[in-house]
Design a binder for these strands. Structure first.
Lengths: 344, 344
DNA sequence: ATAGTCATTGCACACGTGTGCAAAGGAAAA
DNA sequence: TTTTCCTTTGCACACGTGTGCAATGACTAT
C-alpha cells in the first residue's frame, strides 16, 4: 500500500487537510508546519494518487492522441512535437494506434473517455465526430491534424498539401517533364486527394494534364506498397517520365522497383516523395521530396489544444481555429531532366 | 458533466448500488432491473470513470512502457508487440520516451507511479531500480527487455545478442573475412557490449581476434552516426574488409558513407546490420542483417507481465523469470568474399 | 399458520484528495 | 480589559464507484 496524505497526517500529528494544503503550497499553512510535512512526505516517498486528485479536480492532465500507427517515421516525428509541447506544460500523453481498424479505434476512444482525458489530438486518421458524442465537443476540446474525416472539427492544424504538391510538380515541369504520374495511398482519405489535386492544378496551370492511367492508388503507404505501385507504372505501354509519390516510404519502395526493373533513376525516370523522413536522405539516390515541418506540426497542435484548455477555465479569448503550415521543396537526386526522346 | 451511476439511479428509480452491480454484471440484481438499467445507461451514453473505479479497486488496467524513443523502427515494432498483447487482455499503455535524458526519465517514472500503473515494461534503456523505490518491487511487477542497467531485475526478456552476433561473425568468417571491425553505439549499455562480445568470441573460436582500432563506438544509433562511424574506418591506414554494425540504422548510414567515398559494397567492403527493420530490405544493396523477432519480444514481455499480474491476485505459481529469444541470420547483398589482395 | 429460505434492494462506508466553513488561539487595537 | 482581526488548524463533505451487511418481501416447507 502506498503512503497517502493520511499516513503523513498521522505521523506529523496534523489533519489530512493540512497535509493536503501544505503539499499543494497553499498559504493557509504555517511555514514551520509546511516544512515539517514536506520533509515527512519526502521521507515516506509519498506520491499523490492521480486518480483521487483528478476525481476531485476534474482534471487529469492527460491528453489523448489517436493516430493510425507509429511505424511511419512521419508520425513518430509529429508525435515528438506533440510530446515536447505537452511535456513542457506538465501534460502526459495517452496514445492509441488505430491501425485503420474501426473497432480498435472505437475501443481507443472509449478508453480515453473513461480515462477522462482533458483533450484530444487526432492525427491524420479519419475519426468520426460521432465517436465523441458522450461529451459535448464545446466542453471537450479536440484538435485535428490533417483532418481526414468528412466531419468538420472546429480546431485543426493543416499542412498545405496542395501547395507542397504544386511545388514538387512545378519543379518537375521546369525540368521538362510533361507526363507526370501520381502514386497515391488509398488508406489516407483527404491527404492523398489534396496531393493529387496539387499536381493537377499545377499541370493545368501550365496547360498540361494528368492522364487517368497515370494515377494509381496503392492500398497503403509502406515501402512494399511503393514497390508494387511503381511496377504498375513501369508496365504501362507508355510509362510516365516522372512519378510523384504520396510519401517518402512509397517513393523509396518505388526506387527499389526501378532498380529491379533496370530502370535508372533519375536518368530514365524521376521520382519524388513527400514528408522528408530521415531515411530519404539515405536512399539511393537521395530522394527529392517536400520537407514537411513535422515536429512543428505536432508542437503547434499540442499548443493549440493547451490554449483551448486554459481558455476553458477562464476567459474566452477565442483562439485561432485553423492553422496552416507550409513545407518546402527539397531537391536531392531522384529528379532530373527527362530523356530527350521522352520529352514531348 | 458526464453522466454517473447516480444519474442513472435517479432516472431508473433505484439506488446507485444497484446500478453499479447491474453494470458490472453481478448476479445480485433481478434480470428485469438489470436490463432496464443497461438500457438507460446506453441511452445516456454512460461511461464509467476510470479514476473512481481504480481508486476503489486498486487496479488501473494500465501498463507503463519506458523506452528511449520511437524514432528507431526497432522500438516501434517491439511496442507493437507489447500493445497487441496488452490490448487483447484489456490493458492500455502509458508510454514514455526518455530520449536518454535522466531528468525526463525521472519525471516519466514519477508520472507513471502517480497514475498507479499496474506494472511496467522497460525497453532497452537503463532505468535504475532505485527509481521505483516508492513501491516494493515484489508488489509492483516490472519486466525488462534487454536490460541495460547494472541492477538486476527479476523478470526480463532477452534477445540473445551474443548468439546473433556470432551468427553474423561466422557468416563473415566463412566468406573469408579475417579483419572484421565493429561499429557500436555508446548510448546502448549492455546490448552493444554483447554484440561486440559475440564477434570477439566467434573470432577467437576460429583462432582470430579483433584489433583495438577496429572497434569504434558511435555516440548514438542513428543513420547519421552510421555514416560518421564508417568514415572513421575508411580513413584507417588499414581498413577492415568487413564492418559489423550495432543496428540497421548505423549500417544503412554506413552504406551511404561508403558510396560517398567511392567504396563499393560488398565488393570492397562487407557491411552487416542488426534488427532487420523494414528499411533494410530496401537499402542499396539490400542489407545482410540479423532478423530479431521484434514483435515477439514485445508480445512475450507483455504476456510475462500480465501473468505476473494475475498471479499477484491469486496463487503464486512462480512464473518463469527470464526468457531468451534467438534471432536468425538473414543474408542479403551487403556481404561477399573479400577482395583477393585483402585476404590474409 | 408459522418458520425458514432465498432473491432482491438499499444503506452506509470506503478509496485518496481538495476545499468551504467554523473554531480556536493569539496579537493588535480601542 | 474588551473587542476586533488575522493566522492557523480541523471538521465535514464531495468527487464516482464498489461492496459488506442488513432489511424487505415472496415463496416454500413443515
Amino acid at each position: 500500500m502506498a503512503t497517502t496524505i493520511k499516513t503523513i497526517a498521522k505521523i506529523t500529528g496534523v489533519s489530512h487537510s493540512t497535509v493536503s494544503r501544505a503539499l499543494r503550497g497553499s498559504p493557509l499553512v504555517a511555514d514551520v508546519t509546511a516544512e515539517r510535512i514536506r520533509i515527512a512526505a519526502e521521507q515516506l516517498d509519498y506520491l499523490p494518487s492521480a486518480a483521487a486528485r483528478s476525481l476531485k479536480t476534474k482534471r487529469t492532465h492527460v491528453l489523448g492522441v489517436i493516430l493510425s500507427g507509429i511505424a511511419d517515421p512521419f508520425f513518430s516525428e509529429v508525435l515528438n512535437g506533440i510530446e515536447g509541447a505537452a511535456h513542457a506544460a506538465g501534460y502526459s500523453l495517452f496514445i492509441g494506434s488505430s491501425n485503420h481498424d474501426a473497432d480498435k479505434e472505437a475501443r481507443i476512444v472509449q478508453t480515453m473517455l473513461e480515462q477522462r482525458i482533458d483533450g484530444g489530438i487526432i492525427c491524420s486518421t479519419p475519426v468520426s465526430i460521432e465517436r465523441w458524442r458522450q461529451f459535448p465537443t464545446d466542453r471537450f476540446p479536440i484538435v485535428v491534424i490533417n483532418n481526414q474525416a468528412a466531419d468538420h472539427y472546429n480546431f485543426s492544424i493543416y499542412h498545405d498539401d496542395i501547395d507542397g504538391s504544386r511545388q514538387l510538380a512545378r519543379h518537375l515541369i521546369e525540368l521538362g517533364h510533361r507526363k507526370i504520374a501520381y502514386l497515391g495511398n488509398s488508406h489516407s482519405g483527404k491527404t492523398t486527394l489534396d496531393r493529387l489535386s496539387g499536381l493537377q492544378e499545377e499541370m493545368e496551370f501550365q496547360g498540361l494534364s494528368v492522364a487517368p492511367d497515370q494515377i494509381h492508388h496503392a492500398p497503403g503507404g509502406s515501402l512494399q506498397m511503393g514497390a508494387e505501385g511503381m511496377n504498375y507504372f513501369l508496365n504501362l505501354p507508355h510509362p510516365p517520365t516522372a512519378v510523384m509519390c504520396f510519401n517518402d516510404l512509397l517513393a523509396i519502395g518505388a526506387l527499389k522497383a526501378c532498380r529491379q526493373a533496370g530502370v535508372r533513376v533519375p536518368d530514365e525516370i524521376s521520382v519524388t516523395g513527400f514528408d522528408n523522413i530521415a531515411f530519404s536522405e539515405f536512399s539511393v539516390p537521395p530522394l527529392t521530396t517536400l520537407d514537411q515541418p513535422k515536429y512543428e506540426i505536432g508542437r503547434q497542435a499540442a499548443q493549440l489544444l493547451l490554449s483551448l484548455l486554459s481558455e476553458e477555465s477562464g476567459l474566452h479569448s477565442h483562439t485561432q481555429g485553423v492553422k496552416v503550415l507550409k513545407g518546402r521543396l527539397l531537391v536531392r537526386a531522384t529528379t532530373a531532366k527527362p530523356r530527350k526522346k521522352e520529352t514531348l
